[in-house]
Design a binder for these strands. Sequence first.
DNA 1: GTCTATACGAAGATAGAC
DNA 2: GTCTATCTTCGTATAGAC
Lengths: 191, 191
Amino acid sequence: MIVMVSDSRSRMVESAVILLAKHGLQATSFAEVLEHSGAPRGSIYHHFPEGKDQLIAAAISLAGERAIALLDGLDGSDAQDVVDGFLGMWRAVLRASDFGAGCSVLAVTVAADSPPLLAAAGEIFRGWRERLAELLENGGITRATAPALATLIIASSEGAVVLSRAERSFAPFDQVGEQLRVAVDAASRRG
Amino acid sequence: MIVMVSDSRSRMVESAVILLAKHGLQATSFAEVLEHSGAPRGSIYHHFPEGKDQLIAAAISLAGERAIALLDGLDGSDAQDVVDGFLGMWRAVLRASDFGAGCSVLAVTVAADSPPLLAAAGEIFRGWRERLAELLENGGITRATAPALATLIIASSEGAVVLSRAERSFAPFDQVGEQLRVAVDAASRRG
DNA sequence: GTCTATACGAAGATAGAC
DNA sequence: GTCTATCTTCGTATAGAC
């Protein structure tokens, strides 16, 4: 039997990830997090003595680790399959939320008022870029191209999710996916 | 002598664009806008009787038109120069703000709580995509490729600005620029 | 067009009991 | 670990004078 060290804490972090992705940083208030998670009121500053920033940092850290875990599962695949897997994750987010959700790390980046929180977001993005570059290299892309191609894939995925949310249509997202496949194919041939 | 129909109104809209790009939607409060613009307190609901949403809609509309005007100035250029011009605009935003500002339309998209405001953001993005596609076509890209390539350029620029803000470095932005140039070059050759 | 005053709610945060 | 009560600040919005 596994001991539940702190169930309400993890439920709050989980809810914060979802609320950040849907409504942004300022709208992810303690009141919203408590309602969404069902966690008890009195446990906020017990679990997060440093306040909201600590909760948000934990949330984007979790979101960051989940994306890394997804990437890990794609290691060893052909570069094209790696890209498809990564895009598939974001497509699922758009579909499951009916264009109502995006990336929690991006939401924090564009609204953060605290330098440490912004730096945390930057570290997460950098981790994604580096891990994806490794996977692309393992999938047949040259070492000279993989880092920049990885950054293109992450930047354009993030942007595509925003465009599709705003337009409430998969059209922008799928156009980006199509062009990324062309780019990866060309890079694979060059490699 | 030109009549100043409403100077404080346009100053408020101008300030809202800047504050949205720097601090996001919720942080773009009337108090901040008034302080930044120097507009008088009593004129808020005179100029914007529908409240904050009306101010924000005017702000992203202005930002949208400015980007269109920049694109218009690039019409007739080679596709590669069009892309360089578009990227140059975003690079200037990052540089002038020391990585403190991004895209006001993106900021609204990820934090909007009002469907009309989200739809307004979507229309702006769609307008950019369509105009850029025209320019690419005029610059030598085939009609079959131009729309999707335009969307890739806009999505990846938006994402690259976010990554560079978070990492406080031009590295992600410049990697994306490099890869976009490769993609546009390849598309030009195919055309 | 601009002013002051004010209502009202929500936000983050703290104190002290249990 | 969780509760209630409370404080302070800030947000949007309205009313009515000038």
